[in-house]
Design a protein around this nucleic acid. Structure first.
Lengths: 187, 187
DNA sequence: GTCTATAGCTTGATAGAC
DNA sequence: GTCTATCAAGCTATAGAC
């Protein structure tokens, strides 16, 4: 088993940065080759399914990373407010304080293959469920918990769009610090 | 002055739909030609500056439309809560209940020319200012008014991203109906 | 003002040397 | 496993007929 010149971690990091910033349609193999350090033909050796498979791989990696880093704190045995605060800290790191766009946002744009859009929808559902579970533990009814989780996702996504479009990351940071109160229903 | 086969309104509507759904980088001239009913070469006659000028034109049109339809209700002499409710109704129509992405969101992605990204930032500023003015009239301090306006924009943008990515428009509708209370500070 | 035709480049993807 | 070379198709943009 000949060693890969570029290991999977580097490869997926390059793929992530390109899909995250350009979306599916505008992510060209030239951009990906540049970001990963591999030639286009080498990318097809690692991903025979082409660009679609590359996007799938980066979504799977993002799922794992998101679960291990961002959602993991939600499953601790601390009190709900503290758990959410830790998730917010992980979110801040994950999105580099608002400097990065969300992969789910950019890959949900028109032009991508149905499999990719379906994956994005599914991942959104997992995130929603994890946050609603904490809201429930904080005392909310199922309906209210879901509503709070939806609000949390919308505020995070909106904060990221605002940061990118208005080039002002402060509101995003404010959203993150407000998440514990939002999800637990604290005043 | 020979009559245009496609009038400016149709032309800009086609441009809008393409840039809105695909962003700048993935908006190809073929897609634009198909959406507008003009051949690629004819598009260059109307927009000698090419794709960049097309994006600028659609942003200018969007600014006008946004000001005339969405922001106009904010300048009426009704009480603040009612003004915001009318804006929310216009927003619902503008984004077709969450079926459309926001042009400002898609054009703020990487890959577009600096002039386009600068225009997007400026338009965000106008929107922010208009909503902050209503919040002030409802009794908020300048700082609080700005914060409320930022929250409103983030929730709307987040709601649109959620609708597209999770394919669920309900939370976006809920955001719109909550805007009057959010901006006026009502409980 | 719109069209057909075309230039020159880039795209996604493949073949084959090493 | 990665590379260079290549393909057909797509791209942005231009030239010139009508």
């Amino acid at each position: 088993m000949a060693a890969n010149k570029i290991d999977d971690e580097q490869l997926l990091a390059g793929l992530l940065s390109v899909f995250q910033t350009h979306g599916y349609g505008a992510a060209s193999l030239s951009l990906i080759a540049e970001a990963t350090g591999l030639q286009r033909a080498s990318l097809y050796h690692r991903f025979p399914g082409g660009k679609e498979q590359m996007a799938e791989a980066v979504l799977e990696q993002a799922d794992r990373q998101f679960d291990e880093c961002v959602l993991a704190p939600l499953r601790s045995d601390a009190r709900p407010g503290l758990r959410v605060r830790r998730m917010a800290e992980q979110l801040a790191a994950h999105y580099d304080g608002g400097r990065c766009s969300c992969l789910l946002e950019t890959l949900s744009m028109a032009g991508g293959p149905p499999s990719v859009r379906a994956h994005v929808k599914r991942t959104f559902g997992l995130w929603l469920k994890a946050m609603a579970a904490v809201a429930r533990e904080a005392g909310a009814s199922p309906a209210v918990a879901r509503k709070r989780a939806e609000d949390a996702i919308m505020q995070v996504q909106g904060g990221l769009v605002f940061a990118r479009a208005a080039r002002d990351r402060k509101p995003f940071e404010r959203v993150l610090s407000g998440l514990p109160a939002l999800l637990t229903g604290a005043r």
